[in-house]
């Protein structure tokens, strides 16, 4: 197990959210979507220009820009 930045995750890679360092509006919006420590996620793919990223979590798909994904640390299989 190792903890990496969400930006570094590859397509179809899964992991569990470890920490979210965003505060303010960004932090709140991330949490509103159910991205809290302990939530499992899987990268579904990236847009044609490699940004934003689409990910699957608790039953739905959502998108984030890479610079927003930078605030999210994910624990993945080494």
């Amino acid at each position: 197990m190792q903890t990496i930045n969400m930006r570094q995750m590859k397509k179809n890679q899964s992991g569990t959210i470890k920490a979210i360092s965003a505060s303010g509006e960004l932090g709140r919006r991330i949490r509103d979507m159910g991205l809290v420590p302990g939530t499992e996620i899987r990268i579904m793919g990236r847009a044609p220009l490699y940004d934003p990223v689409a990910l699957r979590t608790i039953g739905f798909t959502l998108t984030l820009r890479n610079k927003e994904a930078d605030y999210i640390q994910v624990e993945v299989e080494a």
Binding site: E25, R29, M33, P52, F60, T61, L62, T63, L64
Partner: peptide, 9 residues
Amino acid sequence: TPFIMELPP
């Protein structure tokens, strides 16, 4: 504004 958007089915 953050681009945290749902991709609805």
